[in-house]
């Protein structure tokens, strides 16, 4: 027998003799439980609503801050490439383009590589190697972005300038579309370099989450597949991936979110030029890099306001990406379901 005060509803329900013994205190116990329950409910609700309030506050202050610029330039702000602090004529197209392209490069590289690592770790990796690789990936996630930026500028960019970039310019030199994509003098820094750095930065997110969801696939499913003669690739392709696609897409979206908003590392290696170039080797800029570079010394209301408007646009882009991911998941679930 436990002391009376410790008893839960379940205990009371199971031992009806004790219910009879404590019939008098039953309502008191229930009242106390109810009080605790409702207290807990309000606490959790307040915490959850707090997030909504914060989000709303951020949106409102961004809109207020961005208003002078939006009123001045109108929808043209979104499609203008101009960024002229002298004449106070601003447009967001170059940073938007840079943000989207660098994130795209990062995802094109990081998604397949991240998934392959996760597949190797869960399906094929010998036990003794699992921990070292797993820890290495988690450490990669823990490196501050400024370190990636400095490493990118001092080590990675000069390396690319001497090796990868001349190579790309040479081999794609005669192919119509690719020659414009990889043209121009190799500066070392630029859109491609930023994309590569971002790929390294988002890789651990995609890998770690995919590995965790792959691990959660019930062994009986995989064993059944192996049992009917599937190869490892077939098991991964037809059992593991379909079973975990929601989690995997979640991991990819988390990685994409980081790539879109990453600031310091990109600022170091992108070249910070408000220009849209066809070449991936040319310098460009992203929304967050522009804000980080220019906010401290932005003199004049319109300039500051334009930078805040850029922040609002990044917010909207992130929202659209998340909404697309949700919609994608919903469609997949409906198709299966």
């Amino acid at each position: 027998m436990q002391p009376a005060g410790r008893r839960t509803v379940v205990d009371l329900a199971l031992q009806d003799n004790s219910i009879r013994a404590e019939a008098a205190s039953r309502s008191r116990v229930l009242a106390r439980l109810q009080l605790g329950d409702s207290g807990f409910r309000y606490l959790t609700r307040a915490a959850a609503l707090g997030v909504l309030a914060l989000l709303g506050g951020v949106i409102v202050s961004l809109v207020i801050g961005a208003w002078p610029a939006l009123r001045q330039f109108g929808p043209g702000f979104l499609v203008s490439e101009r960024w002229n602090p002298v004449t106070e004529n601003f447009g967001a197209l170059a940073p938007i383009y840079g943000t989207v392209i660098t994130s795209l490069i990062a995802m094109v590289i990081a998604v397949p590589v991240g998934l392959l690592i996760a597949m190797f770790l869960t399906e094929m990796c010998p036990m003794w190697l699992r921990r070292p690789i797993g820890i290495a990936i988690e450490l990669l996630a823990g490196i501050p972005s400024i370190i990636y930026g400095i490493w990118g500028l001092f080590v990675f960019a000069p390396f690319l300038q001497d090796t990868l970039q001349p190579f790309l310019i040479r081999i794609f030199g005669d192919i119509p579309v690719l020659s414009t994509l990889f043209s121009g003098p190799p500066y070392g820094i630029g859109m491609l370099t930023s994309g590569l750095i971002l790929a390294i930065m988002v890789l651990p997110f995609i890998t770690a989450i995919s590995r965790d969801v792959f691990d959660a696939v019930p062994p009986v499913l995989k064993e059944a597949a192996y049992g009917i003669g599937c190869t490892t690739w077939e098991v991964v392709r037809y059992v593991v991936l379909p079973y975990t696609r929601v989690g995997v897409i979640g991991g990819i979206m988390l990685g994409l979110g980081r790539a879109l908003g990453e600031t310091m590392a990109v600022t170091f290696v992108i070249g910070n030029a408000h220009k849209i170039s066809a070449s991936l080797l040319a310098p460009g800029t992203t929304i967050s890099a522009t804000i980080a570079n220019e906010f401290t010394e932005a003199v004049g209301d319109l300039y500051t306001s334009s930078l805040i408007a850029l922040g609002l646009i990044l917010f909207v882009i992130t929202f659209i990406v998340l909404a697309c991911a949700r919609y994608l998941l919903l469609r997949i679930e409906r198709r299966i379901g």
Binding site: R82, Y187, I189, A273
Partner: peptide, 15 residues
């Protein structure tokens, strides 16, 4: 023109 930041016709920007 002349300002603390301008619209550069060419080049790489560094912080």
């Amino acid at each position: 023109g002349n300002n603390t930041a301008v619209e550069w016709p060419t080049g790489i920007g560094a912080k």
